[in-house]
């Protein structure tokens, strides 16, 4: 493992830890015990793959880890700070600062160009001046192979292109943790390799933790660790 110069903390540190996560979905008769005690860690510089059959609870887990949803039981800590069941403001701030999320289905704000989509999280965080935001967004789009299409609106991009923009957007604030729900699901072999090559490189270079859900066994096999999941638990 090569050391990353820019890394603020040594690689291998646990940045995301969850233990005993339970999540029920639905109401009354439709109430389903989706996650049944999931414990998990993600480390800087590591790419973790979560694999498992459809409906086993992968997305549900990822929403919890991304602080988009609250567990019914269990704890989630980011950078050592317990974030589960804290107030909305704290979780929102943590999302902006620490987490880059790639959704499984809808990816982009369609009325905005690829560039604007990538700049959206940066604008909220406000860490960079406008020209640097622009430059960084261009760079990220180029790295996912969309350097030529930065000004296309979301509606004018294919599903795979949208997905790649979403990956670039998740990376824009240099989050500590990247959570991607099947980021290569809509991509052909060449593009999925391109996106997949990008994630471990970033993980190593910037000391980021990457957690991705995938159905693609080849991609899973190239990750640092694979977590098979079934019926709401890791097996």
């Amino acid at each position: 493992m090569k050391a990353a110069a820019a890394s603020p903390a040594p690689l291998g540190d646990v940045v995301l830890r969850c233990s005993g996560l339970h999540r029920y979905l639905g109401r009354d008769e439709g109430r389903v015990h989706v996650l049944k005690g999931v414990s998990f860690e993600a480390r800087r510089g590591q790419v973790e793959a979560i694999v498992g059959p459809s409906g086993c609870g992968k997305s549900t887990l990822l929403y919890l880890l991304g602080l988009l949803d609250q567990p019914d039981a269990g704890e989630i800590a980011i950078d050592g700070q317990v974030m589960s069941n804290t107030d909305d403001a704290a979780r929102t701030a943590a999302r902006g600062r620490h987490i880059g999320f790639v959704f499984q289905f809808h990816f982009l704000m369609l009325e905005f160009s690829a560039l604007e989509n990538v700049m959206m999280p940066m604008r909220k965080l406000g860490r960079l001046p406008e020209p640097e935001m622009r430059e960084r967004a261009h760079g990220l789009l180029a790295s996912v192979g969309l350097g030529e299409k930065t000004h296309r609106l979301g509606t004018q991009l294919s599903g795979g292109e949208q997905q790649r923009v979403a990956v670039a957007r998740a990376l824009s604030n240099q989050p500590t943790i990247i959570l991607a729900d099947e980021p290569t699901g809509n991509l052909d072999a060449r593009n999925s390799t391109m996106v997949f090559d990008l994630l471990p490189r970033l993980a190593k270079d910037n000391g980021q933790a990457v957690v991705l859900v995938t159905h693609n066994p080849e991609i899973a096999s190239r990750c640092d660790a694979t977590r098979p999941m079934r019926d709401g638990v890791f097996i």
Binding site: G66, L68, D88, A89, T92, A93, R95, G96, R97, I99, F101, F103, H106, L108, M109, M120, P121, K124, L125, R169, N173
Partner: peptide, 16 residues
């Protein structure tokens, strides 16, 4: 609503 979810996932607050 989906855009709202995307915005919120990126750190946009309720007040935003």
């Amino acid at each position: 609503t989906k855009d709202i979810a995307i915005l919120r996932s990126m750190g946009y607050e309720r007040s935003d």
